[in-house]
Computed example of a mutant assay.
Amino acid sequence: MVRTPLTPEERERGERLGVLLREARAERSMVSVAAEAGLSAETLRKIETGRAPTPALFTVAALASVLGLSLDELVRRCELVVA
């Protein structure tokens, strides 16, 4: 299966998600947050750095739950602002 290349907007949205998760994680270690969410630290690192800009919904939901974020808030803050 060949994956369709991401648009610049999709990449930008993934970068915003990474920033939001990193800010919400704050002083907590990447390893502890990832473990609590049932993910590997490498998966979390890829999401936070934008190298995995389109993580699965269940992955985002698990991270949001661990970090005390609502999915609605994440969606709102990751939406593209069209001028």
Rank of each mutant, 00 (worst) to 15 (best):
M1Y: 08
M1I: 14
V2R: 14
R3P: 11
R3A: 15
R3M: 15
R3Y: 12
R3T: 15
P5S: 08
P5T: 11
P5R: 12
P5W: 08
L6P: 12
T7P: 06
P8D: 15
P8L: 11
E9Y: 01
E9R: 07
E10Q: 09
E10M: 05
E10K: 04
R11V: 10
R11D: 09
E12A: 15
E12T: 14
E12F: 12
R13A: 04
R13C: 05
E15C: 10
E15K: 13
E15G: 08
R16M: 04
L17P: 03
G18L: 03
V19R: 07
V19A: 07
L20Q: 06
R22C: 09
A26Y: 08
A26V: 10
E27M: 00
E27N: 07
E27S: 12
R28T: 13
S29C: 12
M30H: 10
M30Y: 08
M30D: 13
V31H: 13
S32P: 12
S32D: 15
S32A: 15
S32L: 13
A34P: 09
A34I: 04
A34C: 10
A34N: 05
E36C: 14
A37C: 07
G38W: 05
L39K: 05
L39G: 06
S40T: 14
A41F: 13
A41E: 15
T43D: 06
T43Y: 06
T43W: 03
T43G: 07
T43M: 11
T43N: 09
L44W: 05
R45E: 09
R45F: 11
K46D: 07
I47T: 01
E48I: 04
E48N: 12
T49E: 09
G50E: 05
G50W: 08
R51P: 09
A52K: 01
A52I: 00
A52T: 04
P53T: 07
T54E: 11
T54K: 12
T54V: 13
P55Y: 00
A56C: 00
A56F: 02
A56W: 05
F58Y: 13
F58W: 10
F58D: 13
T59E: 04
T59M: 03
T59W: 01
V60H: 00
V60N: 04
A61L: 03
A62C: 05
A62T: 01
L63T: 01
L63V: 00
L63A: 03
S65N: 10
L67P: 04
L67Q: 02
G68T: 00
G68R: 02
L69F: 00
L69K: 02
L69Q: 01
L69I: 03
S70D: 08
S70C: 06
L71M: 03
L71E: 01
L71P: 04
L71V: 05
L71F: 05
D72F: 09
D72H: 12
E73S: 11
E73K: 06
E73N: 05
E73P: 00
L74K: 02
V75Q: 01
R76K: 14
R76P: 07
R77H: 08
R77N: 07
C78F: 03
L80V: 10
L80E: 13
L80P: 09
V81Q: 11
A83V: 14
A83N: 13
